[in-house]
Amino acid sequence: MNKDGNEGFILKEDVKLMNEKMTRPEKEQVTFNKDRIAWRIGLNNFAKHLFFLSTVFAIVVLGILLYQIVVGSIGWLDWQFLTNNLSIFPEKAGIKGAIMGTLFLMMIVIPITLIIGVATAIYLEEYATEGRIQRIIKVNISNLASVPSVIFGLLGLTVFSRMLNLGPSILAGGLTMSLLVLPIVVVASQEALRSVPGFLREASYGMGADKWTTIWRVVLPISIPGIITGAILSISRAIGETAPLVVLGVPTLIMKIPTGIMDDFTVMPIQIYYWTLDTVLTPEYAYLASATIVVLLVTLFILNSVAIIIRNKFQKKF
């Protein structure tokens, strides 16, 4: 009996025989089916365990990572660490500058990505006429989302830092980061808009509403949870991203806390990067890096939780 799994459940031959109502020894047919079923059940068990192992692997890796980081940060992560300025003495060093840099960066990234991202999505989903050009744009926005971040860094360096002469300022960094995460917001918003059923739009048009009224009063209120979820996830990405800012030339040794968008700045991931590099000189920097990673992870964890809460709370069913 063939057990390589390539055979169909019922052989063509069987169908033919059944169709012709030809009698076949019943016993033989039953044993054939039994073997197949045992084989299928075995395969299912094997698959189940394989998938379970894959899941365990991912969780174990995450566990090891978290354990190492948290253990490294113990004794170093305290209130002083969050509020102190940078220092060359590990005991005195704090990440206030990096935290403020991250906050300032978000003040640029959030409004720009939300406004441009949602506007783009509305145009593509609601206004643009179906056609080749619209399809090309849509596909390319999705492609843009997978462009490596370092390339966006080069774009930011050329356009914002050099051509517009913004240097490695918060504004230049914020604009670069906005470009990086914009495709994510656009794609998420497009999906949110698309999920609004057509019959609701029809209802609104049927009462003499124009397109914008319909979008503003019917489509957006329903799709806003999806849009916000996408926005929060993209902001998480921007907070954790390092490469584009390194390319822009954002320094780490900032003794001065930034006060405006034209100031030089640094952010948490860059702080982690340089501290890790400098462990060669001062081994204690490794602990500082760990402590910063904990702060960064907690921030991202909170943001992702908020996204999930919003998604669950405002989910509407039709």
Binding site: F199, E202, A203, I222, K316
Partner: peptide, 12 residues
């Protein structure tokens, strides 16, 4: 000229 559709379509 108002319209009522096949499937009830109230807004959420």
């Amino acid at each position: 000229v108002g319209m009522v559709f096949q499937k009830p379509n109230p807004f959420p």
